[in-house]
Design a protein around this nucleic acid. Structure first.
Lengths: 331, 331
DNA sequence: CAGCCTGCCGTGAACGTTCACGGACGAACC
DNA sequence: GGTTCGTCCGTGAACGTTCACGGCAGGCTG
């Protein structure tokens, strides 16, 4: 059972008062070197460690903690965001707690964090209703998504503009008919996301044939490869492909090479994300780059604004970041 | 300045007592539906959110929080560990806060977490002295590393056994002279790690020539490629290579293909880590697989043991996990 | 009608730490 | 020798919440 050792236990054992123990531990001065040594010795012997909750409760400046919900730890896009967020947040004095909804119950993960954070940030899978219930009134900043309820803010990516530019550029480069490899998995279980925005924008700006050439696959390299083969079988005249994300694009490129299709001569392949991994393969992956630095910076701007108002903002805050076409070798 | 809204503010505004506000927020019963609604309404209007520190201070069961130090967010090995740890920790009721030392000051990152966690876990770059100072008495579990001081525990990987088996298997497969691509970056600034353990074990079991054929490179795909070319230039008779990690191995494989070297016919390449990414490239990467599940499970076993004793363990706890040879196509 | 139970609500205490203040003691000064 | 100062240490209060308990109605029971 072993009740935890408190500051009073140490004080009694060392024959001093609470305050003296505090002084010893926090290097406060107003204490002789001898008592300090003795107190620290007794502390170590009893295994005393200050209670972090009590300490933060009374402490001067309250630490600000953000809960980051990572979409998936197996997709570099999300881990790069996580890394960027962690670095930028630390610089601004934010603590970060992380969770991921990919394995197990996202509701449980969010509720667990709720007791420790002032704010949520990230990619959520939950529906609006579930999410609103899970966050327990704690404000949330949605990345690449939005929710109209009070207490929810967002940083969106203007992917529509990115796709429009990409389609125009592909056509200018001589592509006759463009196709798309979509994700078979919708992030949010919401009517807004079916079909995926990427697919909607693609269909809006597609060219070369009245019927949109779209095939969906799993969000992985293998899924991209399979989808590419299916696309070729179904629409053999396609000579340019927009792929849902870079991991799938790499898979598609490998599949094309295996089929003896020359890239970018016979086929231009364009991913989405702008992964650094895309620079390390051959040919390097051309992509609609989503600026992760700007994404997390914007999110932290909102976070700082909320913190300045003690997290009692009524109106929703929104930012938009623009994607950037990153021409490498594959398109 | 705006002092934060407390439970008393809500109580006064709603004309009830603290306890009634608590009852309303925590669904406790002993409260009429009408007052409950009124209290929640006033709460929302004032923007009241319970102080998490006060709540945790008095609450029945103390949440257990672990601080995870992620080696790097740009190497899938570490992010896979992070993902596995997050999932397993959540299952056992641990909260997880993360930081990374890769960008900026690792000391600052550790000290920041120190106020919020009961325990540290992860890959540290700091020297023993710096680390001991940074953790402020909070116990730490070192992954794939060790530190003999009190309060430090570890989960080690018996890489020596893995390398020994790998070398024997490579020789059995007909390799005449084996070489190695090492990392030019030492994780810990400590004499124990120079040269890297992987290199030490390689040299212990290398065969085919008295002089060990070793070239070091950056820990990335590109670094692996460059190192492979250097290795070929310097030791043209090498026909089997142990590579520091899988990312570098992928780079080496690509370089070999570019040089027209057949894999595994003319050259066998063996990585370390067991990344799932290694299954998605061609040829798939044979590797000494470090079991990330076992690693985090062992770490959490230690964590649970420490928690059971209120984190006042004097002796150091250690676990060892065995690597496993994963024969895929490249060796 | 006395007694009891039930529904609703309030008051003191507790959690473990730090802050603000004050007091004892010795040395140094005029 | 009284005053002042500096060093070292202790005591009450505060942080914001929940827990344990008790109280006050009103309705029901015997």
């Amino acid at each position: 059972m072993a009740r935890r050792v408190t500051i009073n236990d140490v004080a009694m054992a060392a024959g001093v008062s609470r305050q003296t123990v505090t002084r010893a531990h926090n290097d406060l001065g107003d204490i002789s070197e001898a008592t300090k040594r003795r107190v620290l010795e007794v502390s170590a012997q009893l295994g005393y460690r200050p209670n972090r909750f009590a300490r933060n409760l009374v402490g001067r400046q309250r630490p600000r903690a953000a809960g980051l919900l990572v979409g998936s730890f197996s997709n570099p896009y999300y881990t790069e965001i996580a890394g960027a967020f962690l670095a930028a947040a630390a610089e601004r004095g934010w603590q970060v707690m992380m969770a991921s909804g990919e394995s197990g119950d996202e509701t449980a993960a969010v509720e667990m964090l709720a007791g420790h954070v002032d704010l949520f940030v990230g990619h959520f899978r939950l529906s609006d209703d579930e999410l609103a219930a899970a966050v327990q009134g704690i404000p949330a900043i949605l990345l690449d998504d939005r929710c109209s309820r009070p207490g929810f803010h967002s940083v969106e990516i203007d992917l529509r503009a990115g796709v429009r530019q990409a389609m125009a550029a592909l056509e200018a480069k001589g592509v006759r008919r463009v196709g798309m490899i979509d994700s078979s998995y919708s992030l949010r279980a919401s009517p807004t996301y079916s079909p995926t925005p990427r697919r909607r924008f693609f269909e809006e700006f597609a060219f070369g044939a009245p019927e949109p050439a779209v095939v969906a696959g799993e969000e992985s390299m293998a899924g991209g490869g399979h989808a590419f083969r299916a696309l070729m079988a179904q629409y053999p005249d396609v000579d340019g492909v927009l792929v849902f994300n870079d991991m799938m694009a790499i898979g598609a490129i490998q599949a094309a090479q295996a089929l003896g299709i020359e890239i970018p001569g016979r086929m231009r392949i364009l991913g989405v994300d702008g992964l650094t991994l895309g620079e390390a393969v051959h040919p390097t992956v051309s992509t609609i780059s989503l600026d992760r630095e700007a994404l997390v910076t914007s999110a932290l701007d909102i976070a700082d604004t909320l913190a300045a108002g003690n997290f009692t903002h009524t109106e929703s805050l929104h930012r938009t970041v623009m994607p950037r076409l990153l021409w490498r070798e594959s398109a």
